[in-house]
C-alpha cells in the first residue's frame, strides 16, 4: 500500500517540480510507515533511477512514446490501473498544469478525496487533514480527506526538494493504453526564457515604467539575476507585454523565492497572484504604495535611477 507519486515530464525531461513532489511523497510515506513509489509515463532521456535520491524507492515506468504528450483522459486511465495494481493509498501530484488536468479526473474516477494546492504534509493527529491555499493565497484552509484513497496535489515551490537516498528500482508497467481523443496540433514554447510558473526568481514591472520601450532594463536585470520577467495587469492589457507575463488574481499565480516588483503599486488583485513568494522586493517612487506593506525589502525611488544601479551591483556579484 505505497504512496504513489506522479513523476511529471515534458519534452523527454523530468519537470522541475518532480523532485519537490517526490520529497513530499517520501515524507508522507514515512509518516504512514509505507513506501514511496513513482509512476512515469512516456520516454525520458535522463537517468530515471537517479530520482531515487529524493526518496522514491520504485518507479513504475510506462516507456511508450505515445505518452510523451499528456492527454488527461489517457493518463488518468493508466494511473488508475497502476493505483489498482500496486494498491496505492495516497497519490501525489504537483499542482502544476499537468496536475490540474489529471488529478481531478483521477479523483472522480477513483472517488477519492482531492486536496489541490497543498502547502504542507498532512496532519494525521485527528484524521487526515491537509493545508491548502484558498482565497487566491490570502488564506489557508485545513481540509479533511475522508476517503480510503486520497489525492494531494502540491503547490509548486511550496515544498523544498531534498536529496538524500540512493537510486530507485525502475520497473516497466504494462498498461492498457487507449487512443487519445485530443490531438496536439502545434506547440509554441518561448525559447530562451525561463517559464514564469517554474522560475525561482521573477522581476516584474508595472505601468510606472511609462511604455514598452523601457523594458530593456527590466530584461537586463532579470537576465543578470537569472530571473523570469513578469508584469502587472495594466501593462498586459495595454499590450506593452505579452499576456502570459501577467501575474495577479486573473493572471498567473506564482510563488517564486524572489519577487521583485518595480513601479507596481500593489493592488489587492496583483498581490493575490504573488503573495506566496518567499521574498518580495518593492521598488516604487511613491512611499505610500500599498505594495510596501507586503514587502520584505523596499527602495523608495525612481525605477529609472534605481534599476541601472541594481544591474551594475548584480553584475559585480
Amino acid at each position: 500500500m505505497p504512496v504513489l507519486i506522479f513523476l511529471d515530464q515534458s519534452d523527454n525531461t523530468i519537470k522541475k517540480t518532480t523532485p519537490e513532489v517526490i520529497t513530499y511523497g517520501a515524507k508522507l510515506a514515512a509518516q504512514l510507515g509505507i513506501t514511496a513509489e513513482g509512476i512515469l509515463l512516456g520516454t525520458v532521456s535522463s537517468d530515471i533511477a537517479a530520482l531515487g535520491k529524493y526518496g522514491v524507492t520504485k518507479i513504475h515506468h510506462v516507456n511508450d512514446e505515445k505518452l510523451n504528450h499528456p492527454d488527461g483522459q489517457v493518463y488518468t486511465q493508466i494511473i488508475a490501473q497502476a493505483v489498482d495494481a500496486i494498491g496505492a493509498k495516497v497519490i501525489v501530484f504537483s499542482n502544476n498544469l499537468h496536475g490540474k488536468a489529471i488529478a481531478p479526473r483521477l479523483a472522480a474516477k477513483l472517488k477519492a478525496g482531492l486536496v489541490s494546492g497543498a502547502v504542507a504534509l498532512p496532519d494525521m493527529s485527528n484524521g487526515f487533514v491537509v493545508k491548502k491555499t484558498v482565497f487566491s493565497g490570502k488564506a489557508f484552509a485545513n481540509i479533511s480527506v475522508n476517503t480510503g484513497i486520497k489525492i494531494i496535489s502540491v503547490n509548486p515551490n511550496a515544498f523544498q526538494a531534498e536529496a538524500s537516498g540512493g537510486a530507485a528500482e525502475v520497473v516497466p508497467f504494462n498498461a492498457t493504453i487507449n487512443a487519445a481523443k485530443t490531438k496536439v496540433v502545434s506547440v509554441n514554447k518561448i525559447k530562451g526564457e525561463i517559464p514564469l510558473s517554474e522560475a525561482e526568481r521573477v522581476v516584474s514591472a508595472g505601468r510606472g515604467l511609462k511604455g514598452p520601450e523601457n523594458w530593456k532594463m527590466i530584461e537586463e536585470l532579470a537576465s543578470v539575476l537569472h530571473a523570469a520577467t513578469a508584469c502587472s495587469r495594466a501593462v498586459a492589457d495595454a499590450g506593452w507585454r505579452p499576456h502570459h507575463e501577467h501575474v495577479g488574481q486573473t493572471g498567473l499565480a506564482i510563488a517564486p523565492n524572489l519577487y521583485m516588483a518595480i513601479a507596481i503599486s500593489g493592488a489587492i488583485q496583483h498581490l493575490a497572484g504573488v503573495n506566496r513568494s518567499k521574498v518580495i522586493v518593492v521598488i516604487n517612487k511613491d512611499p505610500e504604495a500599498p505594495f510596501f506593506k507586503a514587502a520584505d525589502y523596499g527602495i523608495v525611488g525612481d525605477a529609472f535611477e534605481v534599476v541601472p544601479k541594481l544591474i551594475e551591483a548584480a553584475k559585480a556579484l
Binding site: 515534458s10 498544469l97 481523443k181 490531438k183 496536439v184 506547440v187 509554441n188 526564457e193 517559464p195 517554474e198
Partner: peptide, 12 residues
C-alpha cells in the same frame, strides 16, 4: 497554456 508557452489542441 503549457509551462513556458502554449499549445494548440484539436478535439471533437
Amino acid at each position: 497554456e503549457i509551462e513556458g508557452g502554449e499549445e494548440v489542441v484539436e478535439a471533437s
